[in-house]
Amino acid sequence: MKVLIYSAKDFEIPYLENANNGKHKLTFIKDALTSKTAIKALGYDAISIFSADECSFMILEKLKDFNVKYITLRSTGYDNVNLRSAARLNIKVANVPAYSPYAIAEHAVALLLALNRKLIASNSRVKQFNFNLNHLIGFDLNGKTIGVVGTGKIGSVMSKIMHGFGCNLLGFDIEENQCLINDFNIKYMSLIELCKQADIISLHVPLNSDTHHLIDRNLIEQMKPGVVIINTARGLIVDTEAIIEGLENKTISAFAMDVYENEKNLFFKDLSYKMPEDNLFIKLNAIPNVLITGHHAFLTIEALTNIAETTIYNLDCWNDGTDTENELTETI
């Protein structure tokens, strides 16, 4: 099968080539999938895209005209793909449903620890041989209450880790995880009640119509004063303007994120040679008690291996005329 890999990153290419082992003819391009770059898929049976690629109805129509039959995502999230249109056009779409919940949850904990214990500021001082400890005070995680919003695979791992720190666990999800209740004494409650009680809130929900701007101005007003918020889920789950307001009025004491609602024009690129044209991000990035990483929570050896193997597995199934259990268009 001839496959065009959009948004190919240098760090992932070896993993994909190793998983492929010469089975499919892979072509890697750095370009993201857009209405302008869709033409590059001409002559290919399948394409592979990443979470920042655009796969709207108009683009899917172009891909159909170019005789592309399959789309395999190198991500879990698929809100960037119009699945209903893909199904109508008979284009099969599959994703990587679970590559490493540990990678994401552990990154969330790393953000929390670095933010709380002022590790970035402390290291920056030491680099300049400044060993002054003023303004580096954090707090013990032991005994604190953490609200886990979304207790699926990643949220479950996050709950387990924070239980190990001695935290009290609160959970919010459409389905309660009985194992978390039994093993870690997590207490499920409404999102508003969780926000009122939690010292720390960690977000692990998928992006959909119900979770878009889930963390908005009204909800932030309900939060416990001085709350710390960690977002390693999807950028659009939080209203960034509301987050900035919460930081300015001290409702939020600190905020860390690995995802951003307008990240498509920023992340995965080197923009060090020019100022990004995103005043909202610039303002957020300038706030001292904000810690941002550029969507690299998934960046572990294990996760990259699983992403590559599942991506090739999806292609193998389609090439053999069989179904993959990772197909998203079957249920539409």
Score class of each variant (00 low, 15 high):
Ala8Cys: 12
Glu17Asp: 15
Asn18Asp: 15
Asn21Cys: 01
His24Asn: 04
Ile29His: 07
Leu33Tyr: 11
Ala38Lys: 00
Ile39Ala: 05
Ser48Cys: 15
Ser51Arg: 06
Ser51Met: 15
Glu54Gln: 15
Cys55Glu: 01
Ile59Gly: 08
Leu60Gln: 09
Glu61Lys: 13
Lys62Glu: 12
Lys62Leu: 10
Tyr70Thr: 07
Arg74Glu: 04
Asn82Pro: 04
Arg84Ile: 05
Arg84Leu: 13
Ala87Asp: 07
Ala87Ser: 15
Arg88Trp: 04
Leu89Ile: 01
Asn90Ser: 03
Tyr99Pro: 00
Pro101Asn: 06
Tyr102Ile: 14
Ala103Pro: 06
Ala103Cys: 14
Ile104Glu: 02
Glu106Phe: 10
Ala108Trp: 02
Val109Trp: 00
Ala114Met: 15
Ile120Gln: 07
Ser124Leu: 06
Val126Thr: 11
Val126Trp: 00
His135Glu: 13
Leu136Asp: 14
Gly138Asn: 09
Asp140Gln: 15
Thr145Glu: 08
Thr145Ser: 07
Val148Gln: 10
Val149His: 00
Val149Thr: 02
Thr151Lys: 01
Lys153Ala: 15
Lys153Trp: 02
Ile154Ser: 13
Ser156Asn: 04
Lys160Pro: 02
Met162Arg: 03
Gly164Cys: 10
Asn168His: 13
Leu169Glu: 00
Leu169Ile: 03
Leu170Pro: 08
Phe172His: 01
Gln178Arg: 10
Gln178Trp: 04
Asn185Tyr: 08
Lys187Glu: 14
Tyr188Cys: 09
Met189Trp: 10
Leu191Asn: 11
Leu191Val: 03
Ile192Phe: 07
Glu193Tyr: 00
Glu193Gln: 03
Lys196Leu: 03
Gln197His: 12
Asp199Ile: 07
Ser209Arg: 09
Ser209Thr: 14
Leu214Pro: 03
Glu221Pro: 00
Met223Lys: 02
Lys224Leu: 09
Pro225Tyr: 14
Val228Trp: 00
Asn231Gly: 01
Asn231Tyr: 00
Ala233His: 04
Ala233Cys: 11
Gly235Lys: 00
Leu236His: 15
Ile244Asp: 14
Glu245Phe: 12
Glu245Asn: 15
Leu247Asp: 12
Glu248Thr: 07
Thr251Ile: 14
Ser253Pro: 09
Ser253Gly: 09
Phe255Pro: 06
Met257Phe: 05
Glu261Gln: 14
Asn262Pro: 00
Phe267Glu: 05
Phe268Thr: 03
Lys269Gln: 15
Leu271Val: 12
Met275Glu: 13
Asn285Trp: 11
Ala286Lys: 14
Pro288Leu: 05
Val290Glu: 08
Phe298Met: 08
Thr300His: 03
Thr300Gln: 01
Ile307Ala: 06
Thr310His: 11
Tyr313Asp: 15
Tyr313Val: 10
Asn314Ala: 08
Cys317Ser: 11
Trp318Leu: 10
Asn319Met: 05
Asp320Asn: 13
Asp323Val: 13
Asp323Ile: 13
Glu325His: 09
Glu325Leu: 14
Asn326Asp: 07
Thr331Met: 14
Ile332Lys: 06
